[in-house]
Nucleic acid binder design. Structure first.
Length: 299
DNA sequence: ATGTCCCAGTCTCTGGGA
């Protein structure tokens, strides 16, 4: 079982890159964020042609979360926006987040489904902009709502996998420079406490549980050659409940997807393989590609 | 380096967000 999460920074602009990556990595499930599409514009046919069912929760110009699931895996139990009702339309006429009444809990940032016996959640946490700003306060409120949803609607003894752009670098090893992180967000103590509250509930940071090295990031600013200088942050995560976390045999960030033309997203996909305990762990990405190709061929 | 990319509307440029 291969699951990935990727902030695509506009699914419309990135369709070709996403198609390429689905072919490259052949995930069973790809969780996506920042699709920037209304549900009516979700490219269901394009994903169907690639062999995937697309479940989409969007609002238009901003945000938007989705899950692409291998076509032969039935999808059930769809929940959007923590079950709190419809999000607001950010399309024509909307003023965006500058609206004083804007609340990230009214935005398309959460989608849960069940597939392959796993509860899968695609999450796009608010950016927060500047520590102490109303947007930062909204970010922390959103994390409180996420934790409450876990408390009320989920169970750490079941198979649950939460993936997404959480816009938090959990530790200093997860950022090129904690002192220079933009606006001080993503690394502040309250944000890291909000992340830890998810671990306290019972979730495991699957990437960190399998990969100890510092300086491995999922996001790099487009500007100033930050990607090539590896000035980035590890802010996209796959958090698993213990029954799943114990079976994670491999975790990787695919930097290849952040390179080349057409212009990629500013995030790279994070991917994990879940298999029987004791399955040998391949050294790197190419080995994992070979493993998935062999399994695909063998049925 | 105020550095780049996305989007929609004001529409071949601008402004907001990341």
């Amino acid at each position: 079982m291969r699951v990935a999460t990727w902030n695509v920074n506009s699914l419309k602009a990135r369709q070709e890159k996403v198609d390429w990556w689905l072919e490259r990595a052949r995930p069973d499930v790809l969780l996506m964020q920042e699709t920037k599409l209304a549900d009516d514009d979700a490219p269901l046919l394009t994903f169907a042609m690639a062999g995937y069912t697309l479940v989409h929760h969007g609002e238009g110009r901003w945000n938007g979360v989705a899950a692409a699931v291998r076509q032969d895996l039935p999808v059930s139990d769809v929940v959007t926006n923590f079950g709190d009702g419809p999000v607001r339309d950010s399309g024509a006429g909307a003023t965006g987040l500058d609206d004083e009444d804007a609340d990230p809990l009214d935005e398309a940032r959460m989608l849960a489904i069940r597939a392959a016996g796993i509860r899968l959640v695609s999450l796009y946490a608010p950016n927060g902009r500047v520590v102490g700003s109303p947007f930062y306060a909204g970010k922390l409120r959103w994390f409180e709502r996420l934790r409450r949803w876990l408390d009320e609607a989920a169970d750490p003894d079941e198979a649950i996998l939460m993936g997404g752009d959480l816009n938090v670098a959990p530790a200093d090893d997860d950022v090129w420079s904690a002192a220079r992180a933009h606006g001080g967000t993503h690394v502040s103590a309250p944000e890291r406490a909000a992340f830890r509250a998810l671990l306290d509930w019972g979730l495991v940071d699957t990437y960190r549980s399998r990969r100890g090295e510092p300086g491995r990031f999922t996001w790099w600013d487009y500007r100033a050659g930050d990607f090539h200088a590896n000035r980035g942050m590890r802010i996209d995560h796959l958090l698993a409940s213990p029954p799943l976390a114990d079976r994670v045999i491999w975790a990787e960030i695919d930097r290849e997807a952040r390179k080349g033309k057409p212009i990629p997203s500013d995030h790279a996909p994070l991917v994990i393989d879940i298999d029987e305990p004791g399955t040998p762990i391949d050294a790197g990405w190419e080995g994992a590609l070979e493993r998935i190709a062999a399994r695909t061929k063998g049925g």
